[in-house]
Amino acid sequence: MHLDDVWQRYRRGGPWVLSNVTARVEPGGIVVVLGRNGAGKSTLLQLVAGVLRPTRGRVTDRPAVVGWVPERFPADQAGTVTGYLRAMAAVRGLGHAAATRAVDEWVQRLGLGAFRDVKLPELSKGTAQKVGLAQAMLAPPDLLILDEPWEGLDAATRDLVPGIVLEVAARGGSVLVSDHRGETVRLPGAASWTVADGTVTTAAADTGPRCVVEVAVDAADLADAVARLREQGHHVLRVREEVGS
């Protein structure tokens, strides 16, 4: 899939959210999308998913089956968990038997069994997020787009996400993941796209040896320091509080 000189703004005459973006995702490739809040990560992911049409430029060779997990799953709608997932499976063109199989598989894998008959608006944020993940996986995606997938998930499900990503990639699918929690450290070999000031800087997957440098920063400057390091293409592995500070 290829983004060819893509520009995006939300209204005529408005500021460009993204400009002159040219990037490529190969089949089986994993891309981590980095950037500060409001940098345009979600906009980029929605352009890739086909939710948004570029104001200028074009996105070509998008695979037929795309799974998109939005940053916040819209739980404010009618139906139960299984009712919703079956309906979405039908929208994806799955027959009754295949839809039932797919829904059962993902309900079980994501630990949604106890919530099968719960209405969507009654779900907690984390459980709703799991439904969002499940709907994207009902038909095995050739392109999986995860917008902050770890947000709101419990530890057990957070641990499942890298496995799902690697599964899709192993099958030849492409995966784009945005993250500001540093969880993408669990995706070794991923390329990175850094979104800053309306542009996207791409970096190939790490292949050579790397060193770990421990840096101490003031707590008040933490977010800025982490964002700056990522913008410069460094991989922030972990953030911890200093004991006794």
Partner: peptide, 18 residues
């Protein structure tokens, strides 16, 4: 207008056609 905006977008992605 019943459908939340994000769900409308999810439906577009699931169908693969605007």
């Amino acid at each position: 207008d019943v459908e939340p905006d994000v769900q409308r977008r999810l439906a577009r992605v699931a169908l693969g056609s605007a």
